[in-house]
Amino acid sequence: MSGPDLLFYFFATLSLGGGLLMVFSRHPVSAALFMIVSLVGVASLFVLLDAFFLAILQVLVYAGAVMVLFLFIIMLLDVGPGGAKASRLKFLSGVAGLISVGLLVILLLDLSLGAMEPSDCSADGCEDCSETSAFAWPEIREETAANGNSLVFSPSVKAFGFGLLAKYMLPLQVAGFLLLAAMVGVIILSRKSTGEEGG
């Protein structure tokens, strides 16, 4: 097992363990901190996948902005552990959680068995099976231009910006408008709730 493999398992454990501790932690503040651990683990996985810009974005947006917003709201609402009311699991929700996890395990087993077993091409002896058994990640090319209508994967921000501004111009504008609408909506929501509270 080489270095990048160990890194993958380390960061996968970090993100999954952070997520599990977040779900099962009692206090909201510790849950938010475990969530930050999980998000940083996911950002490291993005680095392993050569998506450096997305890793930076993940740390900046999620761990930097969203989780600070969560911590700010926790501070604002002054929520504690919640006592017995929050920690007691209802029977129905326990059953629902078990069913969801069970379905997930079945799905995973089905997926992994389907991907691991050699497909029908072993019968006619084609060379596809050797490729599926030893998967090779495609080489990173430094070209930023799109060939045809598909953009070639590249770790550079230049290629990302080119794709964003050339092929995905309209979605980018819509995303900006969505952020504006969310901002206006949040302002109106928080203003009205304080304004109507006295009346």
Binding site: L49, D50, A51, F53, L54, L57, Q58, V61, Y62, A65, V66, L69, F70, F135, W137, P138, R141, S150, L151, V152, F153, S154, A159, F160, G163, L164, K167, Y168, P171, A175, L178, L179, A181, A182, M183, V186
Partner: peptide
Amino acid sequence: RAGANLDGSIFVFFIMTVAAAEVS
């Protein structure tokens, strides 16, 4: 990354945007 296609990465960018708006 496995398909050597940048479209998925750009889609992640939009998912992050929508998630930030949704959380706020």
